[in-house]
């Protein structure tokens, strides 16, 4: 049993491997995040979930998404002026990067960004930046789907997510999990006839036709892989895209990353 305080409130837990973020959220204490997803391992890239942890004389700023709750008696603050300033700056950075993204705009104004002090990212004309590099797509593809069809490429300010050599990835199973987890809508999926197009990966997937309703939906060759990988019910292959998305979304939400098993509730 570990006992800590968050924002002055005493909280006890006997859950091993619980993180500060999980514990805070389970107690109804909100901490903003962008790169966190409960189906995935913590990544610590967006830095929005930073909190102040005080143990003894020392106070440090850490990302709560990965910080293990194991020191008894620490006190945690989640919303000090310092932390607010950091979060506001981070959103200013993201807003300068992706000025057109509604979700970023909303979050920015929610976290106190009032004026635009920073110049927007310069891009070739008629291009806009939609990706905030949270890495959810890369990680869901690797950690959950087990495919690594896409990855981070280049580094620093040049960093982006791409399919190998910016062309069709042979490892892509067309599951569109990347699309579901993307918080900004940067990953777009279009379907036409028995083809599915996933931009920006320049990937085209051929679909099989549903036995029941005649709609083309499941990716050819990979439907069974996904079914086995994710422990999906047999009906999965028979559902139309809309229903399948629903199932997939639910599955993602119930993915228990500690045991790496999917728990499907009826």
């Amino acid at each position: 049993m570990v006992s800590i305080t968050i924002n002055g409130r005493e909280i006890k837990t006997d859950q091993e491997d619980i993180t500060l973020l999980q514990l805070a959220r389970s107690e109804g204490i909100g901490i903003p995040t962008l790169c966190f997803h409960k189906a995935l391992l913590p990544y610590g890239a967006c830095r929005l979930c930073v909190v102040e942890v005080t143990g003894g004389q020392n106070t440090k700023i850490v990302n709560s998404c990965a910080y293990p709750v194991r020191e008894d008696g620490i006190s945690v603050q989640t919303n000090t002026p310092k932390l607010k300033q950091i979060r506001k700056n981070i959103l200013e950075f993201l807003l300068a990067r992706c000025p057109e993204i509604d979700m970023v705009k909303k979050m920015a104004s929610g976290l106190g960004v009032k004026e635009k002090r920073l110049p927007e990212k310069s891009l070739p004309e008629d291009q806009t930046e939609e990706c905030i590099l949270c890495g959810l797509c890369v990680r869901v593809c690797g950690e959950v789907i087990g495919k690594e069809a896409i990855s981070f490429v280049h580094r620093g300010a040049e960093r982006e997510v791409a399919a190998p050599f910016y062309s069709q990835s042979k490892d892509c199973v067309g599951c569109t999990a990347c699309h579901f987890v993307c918080p900004t809508g940067a990953i777009k999926v279009k379907e036409s006839g028995n083809k599915r197009f996933i931009s920006p990966w320049n990937t085209e997937i051929t679909l099989v036709t549903c036995e029941m309703c005649g709609i083309s939906f499941a990716p050819e060759n990979s439907g069974e892989y996904l079914q086995a990988k994710l422990g999906l019910p047999a009906e999965w292959l028979k559902l139309c895209p809309q229903c399948r998305r629903k199932v997939a979304a639910e599955t993602m939400g119930k993915y228990d990353f500690t045991s790496r098993n999917v728990i499907l509730k009826k």
């Binding site: 495919k147 690594e148 069809a149 896409i150 990855s151 981070f152 490429v153 280049h154 580094r155 791409a162 399919a163 190998p164 050599f165 990835s169 042979k170 490892d171």
Partner: peptide, 21 residues
């Protein structure tokens, strides 16, 4: 790179990521 990926059974994306990093 593509050939090596097949031979050593490592996704191309991982090698491409290394090659650009």
């Amino acid at each position: 790179i593509r050939y090596v990926s097949e031979e050593i059974e490592v996704p191309v994306s991982r090698l491409f990521s290394l090659a650009t990093f």
